[in-house]
Design a protein around this nucleic acid. Structure first.
Lengths: 135, 135
DNA sequence: TTTCACTTTAGAATAATTATAAACTAGATT
DNA sequence: AATCTAGTTTATAATTATTCTAAAGTGAAA
């Protein structure tokens, strides 16, 4: 993803392209593979990579803004920290609790044959499958 | 579940049946349906029900001891608090984010037809399906 | 270039959970 | 039954993740 696209991405989602947002967006979205992270890990990685220090609160703000704009998805994982995923398409996850690692599984890699109907008055929003791993 | 069974349950899992543990165990396990809770909600409910006050730290200790002994399972839910479930059999969940409610789904209510193989050197521990609900 | 709503920032505040260390107790030993 | 001891409870402090606050900074419209 080029710089111009990052700017488009931000503008189209009504996020003013500030220095910090562009820097974080470049770091998150200018990569081939999808990327899983917590705010803490992202902060550490940004500290290593960048010249300018970005406040932790800004990283929280920015990540949540990207999530609200649909550029990041939040992944529920057992544990204390919140994980985010640059893959915002409908998909599933392997979760390796040994090293707290998430691995994406394409939606078409899992086929569900039978599923219960939603309770009274509710509808199914989406289905998420977690395959927990062991050694 | 009778009181004698609670004592057996605790003894068989090498948990000394203290007053607090018996009280919490009775509250959690002497019921028909499975029960979902957070430490906070359990604390509030115990305060209402019981005569004796149990320290919050003891509730954390006890819930984790029950989990370690296999009497409770931990459910991963998006959000800040940790949910526990008195249903320790292999099963799945509806999650209603409107009111943060979990509903059990029996293992045989969901049939998965196709599943990817585990990554190099890893094995599949278990598969958890979350059906997220909307109105 | 001026203006102003939006943003960033450091630090304080909050909330969930875990650690600490002193007092307590179940159950074994005498 | 009295004593002992390792395991347990408790109040409180500490820690950790996250959110709030309010002052200073900044994109971009006019």
């Amino acid at each position: 993803m080029k710089k111009i696209d990052i700017l488009k991405k931000l503008r189209s989602s009504k996020l003013r392209p500030t220095k910090q947002r562009v820097e974080i967006a470049k770091f998150l979205f200018e990569r081939e593979k999808t990327f899983h992270f917590t705010v803490e890990s992202l902060n550490k990685l940004l500290l290593k990579k960048s010249i300018s220090k970005i406040a932790l609160a800004t990283i929280y703000n920015t990540v949540h803004a990207f999530k609200a704009a649909g550029h990041l998805s939040e992944v529920e994982v057992r544990g204390n920290k919140t994980y985010f995923d640059t893959n915002v398409s409908n998909h599933h996850h392997f979760y390796d609790s040994e090293n707290s690692e998430l691995i994406d599984i394409d939606a078409n890699e899992i086929v569900i044959q039978k599923i219960p109907k939603a309770p009274n008055g509710k509808k199914i929003k989406n289905v998420e499958v977690f395959i927990n791993l062991k050694n």
